[in-house]
Simulated scan of single mutants.
Amino acid sequence: MKNIVLFASGNGSNAEEIIKYFKNSKNAKVVALFSNKSDAKVLDRAKNHEIPSVVFNKAQLNEGFVLEQLHQFQPDLIVLAGFLLKFPESILKEYPKVINIHPALLPKYGGKGMYGMNVHQAVLENKEKETGITIHYVNEHYDEGEFIFQKSVNIEDCKTPEEIAQKVHELEHLYFPEVIANILMSSRAESRG
């Protein structure tokens, strides 16, 4: 059984979709949720699914507290599902399998400050005909890790960033759990080979 640890900062709709996807899986399960916001709705979502949560602040992320807590859950994969802080190199050294989802077709609309509605607003202002999602490995730079998966969606009919966000959320909910499952299956095959 592979252990998944989620990191999230906000509402947590992606985190909940991942939790539900793996709830009855024989291959993997979500073992913990880590959040840097004590009032994040994602904590309620985790509690409703009986997933333990760890709440921390930015200093604790960078000073070893989060790394110590991660050791207890022995993650095979760490998934950033709407996590807004830069992920520290100290954790990446010990847990190199960290993935993130970005609400645009990277390398466009990536980097510091490009998250959530900021991305959708920029996409709208630039009159893009399409946008989408990018799932990628996390490295020491924002949104620059190796791409794993991209999916685009036509947004020519969208008039607001909220309409774009809705289309992007649909892609995220549909594909993110499947991509996670595929990564875990391929790592299982590698460990057997």
Rank of each mutant, 00 (worst) to 15 (best):
I99Y: 03
A189E: 14
L85K: 10
L174N: 13
F73G: 06
G113E: 04
E162L: 11
P75F: 03
Q121R: 15
K112C: 04
K151I: 08
S187H: 12
A40D: 04
G12K: 00
A40M: 05
E156D: 12
V42H: 04
M114G: 03
E125Q: 14
V30W: 02
D76K: 05
I91K: 00
Q166D: 12
V179G: 09
K20W: 07
I180Y: 04
N24C: 10
I135D: 06
Y142G: 00
M114V: 01
A59M: 13
N154Q: 12
T131L: 05
V66H: 04
I101V: 10
S9N: 05
H120I: 02
K129I: 08
S152F: 05
Y137G: 09
L85F: 09
L174E: 15
I19R: 03
F7M: 06
A81E: 02
E144D: 14
H173D: 07
L174S: 12
N27V: 11
P96D: 06
V179N: 07
E178S: 09
A104T: 04
F147V: 14
F149K: 04
G132I: 00
N62L: 07
T134Y: 06
R45H: 12
A122V: 06
A8L: 02
K26E: 15
P75Q: 06
N154V: 15
G111E: 08
K47L: 11
M1C: 10
G12V: 01
A28G: 08
L84I: 08
S53G: 06
N24T: 12
L105W: 00
I19G: 04
F83R: 01
F149E: 05
F34S: 03
I148V: 15
F22K: 04
T160S: 15
